[in-house]
Write a protein that binds this DNA or RNA. Structure first.
Lengths: 344, 344
DNA sequence: TTCTCTACTGTGAACGCTCACAGCGCACAT
DNA sequence: ATGTGCGCTGTGAGCGTTCACAGTAGAGAA
């Protein structure tokens, strides 16, 4: 009994390119050509194949295709953050969603990989080499060797945020952190604040470095004195923000504004200020960064810098696909926007 | 020039099972046996193969394997929620993380698929049939035909939360929503509350239905009268919670407690109560559901029902893999836990 | 007519793996 | 001696594609 005759209730085996070819009265080759763009195929054959595809419900077997082309037509989204940050930071959702749908438009599935532990990291690296056409990397800490390793292995790669301490040229897409920080500090200055502190991000992350640099620059541009007592590094967590604000108040009781490098930390800052009896924004203005849902949920709602996450994800995918297609690595920096609410 | 001699700076082609076999001095078959559990292989051959694998840096070509086995050794995580909820609900992060790492332990990659639009839904369905061994489904709305379609197509499937209105038997893993709701209402009753309202979830979601049922049951168990004025359906969003609470206060000004079917909605309820000048928990106690980060971030911090998301994800993966292995569909219901904080 | 060029089509070979099968040697029972 | 079983091994076939190549027909030029 030939296998095309097989029937019954079981999960019948899916139609192959052969079945389509027979149905359309053409050869495998022609069907394959239709599948891959339809060049050099007569209109009649093209029609016949297309309706045979519809009739049989054929879908290409990507394993067979990958086996011969060497491409997998899939992309990994690799997260090397320690997990806490992944949980707390709502930006990842937006980024992940954006990447997924941008890839879906090209019919490319996204493989989610999380490298929390060293074992996971190794497993993922082993998987990526040879099983994935490219990698969307989310990993801010500069100590992270993943970017270098992947780049060296020749895997097309786009990082989210500028990878720190990277000698080799690796693609990345980032918001203009420095400019965003400058905008916020200028805004605080223009609303009359003169003792402007900052809770920065971790200084081994690009966001931490760049936002702090923007803060310093704009302070200087505004003619305000640099004062290291006004700078406290945070860790992007709510609790870290609260602790940092406590320290800041201790070192500079005359503080009248704080630029906080993330909304989550800004929530902590808000809490610390409330405990210390300072009113926001009357006594102390607070500016956040990210425009995450936390910014809206805060009381008072946070004035913050919006990062264009939807555009970031779209650009990451665009740059990655271009690189898979043979183009050179590229860096894309996207503008931010100040969102004015109640906290400043 | 044979291809094994090829050299130079280019990305050399990865070693195959042939290379390993030659290196180890055995045949392809023996290497394959080692790769697939090492049964019926002599200790000497096993050693030789293993060190040849290490030496060559061999990794199996999963496409070639899949082509012949018919398995893909990958699993889809399919989200059919409208995107807003995905963004706002932090539970998804925990769930997604949990599933990813539980699968990683079996060396199975997770394909993230989001079906927001109809076009995405069709694309995903087409992909899933034949390219994926099983599906982890997150889709609460009962109108959603995806579960039925997949089940009918014979794709192993585990849903998160009991799929509503499903005649056929499909696996699911869920928290004990009803029991959690009962616990919360009992707690409110035991702390002296007698006019206990509820903001339920959407009634076309299992959580919405079950939590409301638990609320009703416990009210009856406590001997409190049923009063439909005390029940307002919400939509799991913050804004929806705020609106619902407004309605509730209007219909029952003597309210002294609210059981809210999600923390996010509870945040909205808190905001509405504050606007109405009611103190929490003195005037009105508020109980949430989920124990999401929002519960901690709220002021006052929410008393809520913790859903065991880490266990849910682990069980989903376990049940799915069992089903892929040929076992029958199964339903798993996991206990919840009341977390006491400040709001009640 | 004949030749050339172009557009289209079919065919065999590979991609790297697993599976079924056959073959081998050895131990033990007959 | 012969048979039987078992543990281990190698071999050929085939999974469903794409790709390179060869071949065909028809249009246009000579």
């Amino acid at each position: 009994m030939s296998r095309t005759e097989q029937t019954g209730t079981g999960r019948r085996r899916p139609p192959t390119i052969h079945d389509v070819a027979r149905e359309a009265g053409v050869s495998r080759g022609t069907v394959s050509r239709v599948l891959n763009g339809g060049h050099n195929v007569s209109p009649a054959a093209l029609d016949a194949v297309n309706s045979a595809i519809r009739k049989t419900g054929y879908t290409v077997n990507r394993h067979a295709r990958s086996l011969i082309t060497g491409r997998s037509d899939s992309v990994a989204f690799l997260l090397t953050e320690p997990q806490e940050r992944f949980f707390e930071d709502p930006n990842f959702n937006v980024l992940l969603r954006g990447c997924t749908s941008a890839l879906a438009a090209h019919d490319i599935p996204l493989l989610l990989m999380i490298a929390g532990t060293e074992a996971e990291r190794r497993r993922n690296m082993r998987y990526i080499a040879g099983h994935v056409d490219g990698v969307l990397l989310v990993s801010s800490h500069s100590g992270d060797p993943v970017a270098a390793q992947l780049h060296e292995a020749g895997v097309p790669l786009v990082a989210c945020g500028k990878p720190l301490g990277q000698k080799s040229k690796v693609s990345y897409v980032a918001a203009d952190d420095r400019d965003g920080a400058r905008d916020m500090v200028r805004f605080l200055y223009e609303s009359g604040r003169r003792r402007i502190g900052t809770v920065s991000g971790p200084l081994d992350t690009p966001g931490g470095v760049e936002r702090l640099a923007g803060y310093r620059e704009m302070l200087a541009d505004c003619g305000l004195p640099a004062d290291d007592a006004l700078i406290v590094p945070g860790d992007y967590s709510r609790a870290g923000g609260e602790a940092a604000a406590g320290l800041l108040l201790e070192r500079a009781p005359d503080l009248d504004a704080v630029f906080v490098a993330s909304d989550l930390m800004a929530q902590g800052v808000l809490a610390a200020l409330e405990k210390a009896g300072r009113r926001v924004p009357q006594d102390v203005a607070v500016g956040g960064f990210d425009d995450s849902p936390a910014a809206l949920a805060s009381r008072p709602a946070l004035t913050t810098i919006r990062q264009p996450w939807d555009r970031i994800s779209a650009e990451m995918v665009r740059v990655l696909l271009a690189q898979i297609g043979g183009e050179d690595p590229a860096a894309v920096i996207l503008p931010t926007e100040l969102v004015r609410r109640e906290s400043a």
